[in-house]
């Protein structure tokens, strides 16, 4: 599946000198291709997360469209879009994201648990998938821990596993290596790279120079404008 931004823009209403409208993303047309790991870098506040969230179906563009293959994401009902995101788009949000009421394994299984039941036959299969991912990310022994007892890097790796659980065609990662050391950065990037190699569409937003070495395609962003590098 490919994800296309078609003349998408995003404004925020905000008190600035002159106009109240602040344009976080200028008119942008980019296509994220399957089998490619695209890296977007740029200074803080340049609109990277905003663009990523529009791709994720979480933030409607002010104008223009976001197309998943040929469907306009923002013309879908909340229910359809949610289900589509659940199955086909894995999101690693910026920051620490965990559900405090659930342990690590359940946090990772959450995308599946939202729609499926533990009694379902498919559950054991999903659990095996979760275990493999945790193994690969090096957090298998933490599976029964609650998030409050985890380090920032561990939570970040948990979020990576969670995004990959449903084997989504598309993975959108916002600073996935923000809290990680070199070794763990490599672990996470290898997972993402592998996903792209097997035909997935991967989009990574980062400041990290180390991450750039994994890129198939490099984009940079400055004041809402995306340019190819």
């Amino acid at each position: 599946m490919k994800l296309t931004a078609l003349q998408a823009t995003r404004n925020y209403i905000r008190k600035r000198e002159g106009s109240n409208l602040f344009c976080a993303v200028e008119e942008t047309s980019v296509t994220l291709e399957p089998g490619t790991l695209t890296v977007l870098s740029g200074p803080s506040g340049s609109g990277k997360s905003t663009l990523l969230n529009m791709f994720a179906g979480l933030l409607p563009p002010s104008s223009g469209q976001i197309l998943l293959d040929d469907t306009d994401l923002y013309h879908l009902e909340d229910r359809e879009l949610s289900r589509l995101r659940n199955l086909h788009i894995g999101i690693i949000p910026q920051g620490q994201t965990a559900l405090a009421a659930f342990n690590v394994q359940d946090n990772i299984l959450m995308p599946w648990l939202l729609y499926g039941s533990r009694k379902n036959e498919a559950f054991s299969e999903k659990r095996k998938r979760a275990e493999e991912l945790m193994e690969a990310a090096g957090i298998l022994e933490l599976r029964r821990e609650m998030p409050s007892g985890l380090s920032g890097g561990e939570i970040r790796r948990m979020a990576v596993c969670r995004a990959m659980l449903q084997k989504p065609e598309i993975i959108l990662a916002d600073e996935p290596t923000g809290d990680l050391d070199e070794e763990n950065t490599a672990v996470v990037m290898d997972l993402l790279k592998e996903h792209a190699a097997s035909g997935g569409t991967v989009f990574v937003v980062t400041h990290d120079i180390q991450v750039r070495t994994y890129a198939d395609r490099m984009l940079s962003m400055r004041k809402g404008v995306v340019t190819e590098e």
């Binding site: 994720a56 979480l58 909340d78 229910r79 949610s82 289900r83 589509l84 995101r85 659940n86 199955l87 999101i91 949000p93 994201t97 965990a98 559900l99 405090a100 959450m110 995308p111 939202l114 729609y115 969670r162």
Partner: peptide
Amino acid sequence: SRELGLVKALGAYNRS
């Protein structure tokens, strides 16, 4: 709200 937002991002619809 952060957790509710996350659940939404993971694909839960509004009613759920």
